Amino acid sequence: MGYRNKNTGYVNDILASRSVIKRANYAIIPPDGLVNNSIPGFENCELSILATPKLGATFVDYIITLLDGGQNKAGFGGEGIETFFYCLEGKITVWADDAEHTLEAGGYIYCPAGVILKFANSNGGANSEAFLYKKKYEAVAGYETHVVVNNVANLEKIAYEGMKDVILQNLLPADLGFDMNFHILSFEPGACHGYIETHYQEHGAYMLSGEGVYNLDNEWVPVKKGDYLFMGAYVPQATYAVGRGEAFSYLYSKDCNRDPQL
């Protein structure tokens, strides 16, 4: 199995963790303590499972290191399952609907339910890093989704709620066929949300850069690059960016465009 941080033996300190797990409410999962999981189809990959229904999420998130020869040629996703794949570092070749694409840092692909995603490390023998997501698709008559391939470098930068030091990027179309979206929020040091949010939508969020202090259920906790957050429905949430010289940014999912079921 092994740890994601590759540390072995005893630590030179008491055993401690920044992890906070409050099932169906919120969770903070730092890299230290994450274990590598073996899953059929993933070859030469160091894969850690983040959020799952056991945590209270309606989706599953993963963080993956693709080693030399790392791949999933068996296919990911399938009937009723939509997927999203984001390249954090390196170079990765992906296949969907018989089309081949190359993703570099900031590149991503969304596959609709029923479209099988395959991928392989193509970084010249060096490792690549990726974030992976899957969820059951909630279909609505008269609407459908489609494969989306892009890179965040091509996306519009929107002043979030009119705040020029908080930038929002929408990774998927504003189309009612999609029952979820991915965004990147980026806060310059000292910037913050305009208010503490309380809403129906849940999030899985991977910290891309910088440092912040996050309000989760009215408890302020420090977070930084490499941490993962799960925010359940209705949990109060907001952040202040802290640190020096680097924006605090994160990639996050949001369920949308659907009426809650009874």
Rank of each mutant, 00 (worst) to 15 (best):
A113T: 05
G114Q: 01
V115P: 01
V115I: 15
I116N: 05
I116A: 05
I116P: 04
I116G: 01
I116S: 06
L117W: 06
L117G: 03
K118S: 10
F119C: 05
F119Y: 08
F119I: 10
A120I: 09
N121H: 03
N121Q: 05
N121M: 03
S122N: 07
S122F: 02
S122Q: 03
G125L: 05
G125P: 05
G125T: 07
A126F: 07
A126D: 09
A126L: 08
A126V: 08
E129K: 15
E129S: 15
A130M: 11
F131L: 13
F131N: 00
F131E: 03
L132Q: 06
L132H: 02
Y133P: 01
K134W: 07
K134Y: 09
K134E: 09
K134N: 12
K136M: 13
E138R: 11
E138L: 13
E138G: 09
A139P: 02
A139M: 14
V140F: 06
A141M: 12
A141N: 12
G142Y: 06
G142P: 09
G142M: 12
Y143I: 15
Y143A: 15
Y143L: 15
Y143W: 10
Y143S: 14
Y143T: 14
Y143M: 15
Y143C: 14
E144S: 15
E144K: 06
E144V: 15
T145S: 05
H146N: 12
H146I: 10
H146A: 14
V147Y: 01
V147E: 03
V147M: 05
V148G: 02
V148D: 01
V148W: 01
V149F: 10
N150Y: 05
N150I: 06
N151A: 12
V152R: 02
V152K: 04
A153C: 13
N154E: 14
L155S: 04
E156V: 15
E156Q: 13
K157G: 08
I158D: 03
I158P: 04
A159I: 08
A159H: 11
A159D: 13
Y160C: 09
Y160W: 11
Y160T: 09
E161M: 12
E161K: 14
E161Y: 13
E161P: 05
E161W: 08
G162E: 07
G162S: 10
K164R: 13
K164A: 12
K164I: 12
K164D: 14
D165I: 07
V166M: 02
I167Q: 04
I167R: 06
I167P: 01
L168P: 00
Q169Y: 02
Q169A: 00
L172F: 04
L172H: 02
L172D: 03
P173T: 01
P173M: 04
P173L: 04
P173V: 01
A174F: 12
A174D: 14
A174R: 14
A174N: 14
